[in-house]
Amino acid sequence: MSVLVFAEMKGKEIHPVAFELLGKGEEISKELSIKLEAVVFGGDESTAQELIDYGAENVYLYEGEQESCKECLSSLATEIKPEIMLFGATKFGRALAPRIAASLNAGLTADCIDLRVEEKEFIQIRPAFTGNILAHIKTRSTPKLTTVRYRVMKPAEKRKREGRIIKKESSVDIKKSFPLVKREKIESIDIQNADIIVSGGRGLNSKEDFKMLEKLASLLGGVVGSSRPLVDDGWISKDHQVGFSGNTVKPRLYIAIGISGSSQHLAGMRNSEMIIAVNSDPSAPIFRYADYGIVGDLYEVVPKLIEGLEQKVS
């Protein structure tokens, strides 16, 4: 019995969400008095050692492609019978976990923002209805599967630790995949990892006005975000979109400019550390979620902010 963390690989590196899963996993495994283990596909002994240094007692190391890890993961779960399996709620993790869950007939909870143990029971907390409600979910199957949102939990502490590396053979199930005909890198901004985001909404009059927000963002060392309507209208590419059908972000500072604060937008940014809103309508919902706000015309406020910041710099 253990908490088993699926450590996703991003190229040759471990995706940082894995260290967060190990951090939370350590807490949960202690409370339930069970082991903390990790499984990784691709990577080598140093990858496995890194997972050990972040707290895994055993690491199951598979060679071979992560893309075809599904069968191996299901059979590993049948063999070692983990109590809990944790996946990062990345696109890869969110597509993989349901297949594992169905193959094991196990319960799966999506996109959790907190996990805890109450009276020896594992509780999974996730936003429901675009974050208006938080649901506490209990699972009665073994294992209990969970995907966990990136950048909401504290990573485990890294220090020299001892652990066991268990090498495993991969079995590739070819009939379960399609021929890959093209693979390419795409230029996209990494908005989920940005520390500062300056977002524009329908308060903007034209596509060109994003330049003004870019200026502000660059002065602050941040990136530009957007509400959905502007993405739908093709004013900015979709990797900039924040919200329910876009990216979930948690920057140190989020500046919402000409954004009303619909629950679908809030779902993507309400957990930002500091929120600043600029909106001409004093009754805009965004102000209820803001630390600082200016009721005013963005075409007056933003240039003045830029001017003020430039003066500070020089």
């Binding site: 409600i133 209990k138 706000g293 406020v301």
Partner: peptide
């Protein structure tokens, strides 16, 4: 269904300063 909702809570917007300025 192996999972069930044990309870639901409404998140509190904690710690927001809420300093809103009407004077630009």
């Amino acid at each position: 269904s192996p999972t069930r909702v044990a309870k639901t809570v409404v998140p509190k917007e904690e710690g927001r300063k809420g300093s809103i300025y009407r004077d630009v």
